[in-house]
Amino acid sequence: MHSTIREFTIEDRFAKIYALWLREFKVFLREKSRLVASTFTPILWLFVIGNGIGSANPSTIGGVNYQQFIFPGIVSMSIIFTSVFFGSYIIWDRKFDFLKSVMVAPVSRGEVFVGKALGGMTNSVIQAAILLAIGAGIGIGFTPLSILQTIAVVLLLSFGLTSLGLALGSYMYSLEGFQMIVSFVVFPLFFLSGALFPLSHLPSWLGALTAADPATYGVSVMRSAILGIGSEAIGVNAAILVAYTAGLGAFGIYSFGRMKAV
């Protein structure tokens, strides 16, 4: 008796993900203050901390000055902050019932997750691109290979960490609650990643913690690619980064699957 609803094609599914991504991208373009604020902080670190610590300690690390040494770390920092913070937007979506309007549409939770994660990833990638351009201005020499490697790291790290942020956001119902994520997730991810110091001579407890931080592998691979430091382990670090990204993506899809619609 009922009219038959057709099955969705692959093209339909891509259109849904594209539509969700496009919404994030448009909002991002319209909220310029977001971009300005979150790009300014890493620039401050790069120039103030980079020059400040660098001038107090004029020796070089692996043949580069301190500012150059932390450059891959600061790019990663920008990705860590923007990506994980993006998780708070799922709480906003819920607060304004936008999420409900998406959940009541014939869209799978996996599609909702991927669209949203790609949106967050785009924000992080744009910021990273701005910082990479600034890098050229402080004497970072890029080669075609190092640019490709860096882009790969930026994509992987931002997708993985956006997934983490969204997964955590999906369990939370208040923005105040999300503030905890900043203290307990964002700052540890940043400080433990080796963004600001070499990991080679750390006490063993600290070394173990840095090894557990997914961002560590992003920083390491980018540092190898851009500065040639630690290049002997670049393959292993890259493999671990890929594995972390896949794991965090799976965690995100799982978390969205069990998220309550109302």
Partner: peptide, 19 residues
Amino acid sequence: SSDDMLTGYENLKLHSMLY
């Protein structure tokens, strides 16, 4: 429950694709 950063048209476009 529409996204108020988007235009009316953009909201409808988004949902026409979701559906």
